[in-house]
Structure formats: C-alpha cells, structure tokens
Simulated assay, not measured.
Amino acid sequence: MNTDTLNTTPAKHKDFKFAEGELLLVNKPYEWTSFDVVGKLRNSFKPLKLKVGHAGTLDPLATGLLIICTGKMTKQIDSFQAEEKEYTGTMVLGAITPSYDMETEANETFDTSNLTDEQLRNACVQFTGDIQQYPPAHSAIKIDGERLYEKARRGEEVELRLRSVTISEFEITRIALPEVDFRVVCSKGTYIRSLVHDFGKSLNNGAYLSKLTRTRSGSFKLADAWEVMDLVQVIRAESAKPKAESL
C-alpha cells in the first residue's frame, strides 16, 4: 500500500485533521484490550462524535503497535489489517495452558532437561512458510455470533477449524530454559499463541506464550507509535480549539 499521502506521522506538533481522517500509531498497553484503546481515544473526542476504529486486534496480554483510524480513514482499515505483521516475544517451555498464554494456569507440565539449543532452532524450520494452525479456544473468533473465549470461559467445548497462514520468518533470539525469546514475521490472521503451542508439541514437550509485542504492521513501526495517554492529551487539546481551527 502506498502510504506517502496518508497522515501517519506521529510527530508531537503536527496539525491533525481527525474528522477528515487520520491514521494513528499507538503502543497498546499491557492488559488493555484493543477495544479499550479505541474507547479511550473515542471518548477523548467528546463532545464531538467521531468514528474511530482499529486494524489488527492484539490480545490483552500483548503489547505493541496498534493502528487506529479516525474519520474517513476508517474505510482503509481492512487494507491495513491485511498487511504483514512482525512480533517479538517470549515462550515458556515445559508446560501448556488452556489459553496458550498466561491468562490461564498450566494444566500439564513436561521435563525440559533433554532439550538442546540445536533442537529448538531446528524446530523453527517446520513452521516457516505456508502452514495450517488451529486458533486458540480462548480467541476472539466468532461462532454463531459469540466469541470463542466466551464459550471457553464457561467450559463449553468449541469446534476449532484449521486456518492457513504464512510465516515468513521465525527465529530464536535467546535461549534460557525454560524461557525462549523469538521473532516472527507473519501474515494476517496468524495466532502467535497457537504457533508457540504447536512449537512445543513438535518437540514432544509443551510451550505457552508469556510475552508478546507487535513491532511492525506493514511499513508502520512501533518505534513511531504514541503512548496512549500522550495521544489523549493531544486529542483533548485539539478538541478544545475553536471549531474553525480544530479537527
């Protein structure tokens, strides 16, 4: 996508035109949902009612780059959402959890003493390229109008369907068992929790995600993102300007 003409510069003194349409890069805080971020920013525009949306949901326990669109730019959300993503994270070997991350407690453990650095690095190869994965039962995918995580939290069985995704790069960046750091470049719709879970299974072991940060989406980088409350202050200042000058 050609982004040369879009309002995407996160400079602190740029002239925003939120109603006309802005693309904003935000660093999603830990334990916030993506919808929490959208809601916080939307409320900052009050009393003006302004359309605000996000491209590419992040789990509550993940942090990092979230693309926020306002006004007419919300029409481009699907295009931004379809772009390649890059993540860094940490997995814990030797255990699995029902949610594939730290949202739930470990329900099975494994011995990691026989795992070698070579085994871990070699295991990445089979998860590079076009692969298929099941989404976690604790995910935001809707079935019959209800999120999977809502069913999972009630203890209901859910039917998971394989999804085709592409992993362009998957590398181990640090090994300090039981922790393993990694970097992933992947297509839209990839569940890093599922990737980590399947990685553990491939070693006849277990693994769950303990940390995840989205560092890039398409050509947009986390390094250029706003902290949420800094952006809120800017929006409130812009919203307080006389009507002819603001938004």
Rank of each mutant, 00 (worst) to 15 (best):
Q119W: 07
G94T: 01
N107W: 12
G200P: 03
L222Q: 10
S139M: 02
D111C: 10
S217D: 10
L41K: 00
A123R: 14
T213V: 15
N107C: 06
L195W: 13
E227C: 09
I143S: 05
S239F: 03
Y149N: 04
G218M: 01
D198T: 07
T173V: 13
L23R: 02
T9Y: 15
R236D: 03
V38G: 00
W226T: 09
F80H: 05
G21C: 04
E146L: 04
H197A: 08
T173I: 13
S217P: 11
P29S: 05
P60L: 07
E108H: 09
S202A: 14
Q81Y: 01
T173P: 12
F45N: 02
E20L: 11
V185L: 13
K49P: 01
R161V: 14
K28Q: 08
M229K: 12
G71Q: 10
S194R: 04
R154E: 13
T3I: 14
E105F: 05
P242H: 10
L222A: 05
N27L: 04
C69N: 08
S219Q: 15
T190A: 08
V228N: 04
S44I: 03
R216S: 15
D181H: 14
F18H: 08
F199C: 08
R174L: 12
Q233H: 11
A137C: 01
